[in-house]
Design a protein around this nucleic acid. Sequence first.
DNA 1: GTCGCGATAGTCT
DNA 2: GACTATCGCGACA
Length: 189
Amino acid sequence: MPSTDLADLLQTMTVTEAADVLVGWRLSTTFDDRPTAVMITETEAYAGADDPASHSFRGRTARNEAMFAGGGTLYVYRSYGVHWCMNVVVGRPGTGHAVLLRGGVPITGEEVMRARRGRDDHLTDGPGKLAQALGVNGAADGTSLIRGPVRLVPGNLPPGWQIAATPRIGITKATERPWRRVARPVPRS
DNA sequence: GTCGCGATAGTCT
DNA sequence: GACTATCGCGACA
């Protein structure tokens, strides 16, 4: 798929559609010449001005500027003063819609992830952990997910995995919206 | 395995 | 000055 089509796709999808579709895609980085990649397994949709839980709900600020750049942009912010978290911006420029990447499974560079995380388990099973394992920080905010240092590659979940929709995690507003998507291996009967 | 709690500093009111 | 799209640890089961 040509990269312009990928950007077009992310600009024309709704944010909840994007939260669905992104599960199973790959996210790769090559910081410090060390390739890493994960398969995305957990996402959450944030619908800009229509969503009180979204960072862009109250309009443009210095922090959320990248959310308004249009689909295919990476939005990185610092959470609780300590962790970095990544979002895939979705929709036309100016709409402020984005999908938070909450988790994945390592595909490439698991050793690098262990070193960056300083431990051998729980490498990418949370938004802050995912960014740390991939070496992503505020320097990548506003870069292109098609041409930049952090890249999105379309893909599908392997056989034997299923997606569930649940309420979003760690927020206090609009908690009733089932806009989280989690992929898990199908439990064995 | 699950639950509760404190740390921590950028962002916004 | 208050709030937060989190994490890791320790207590318990």
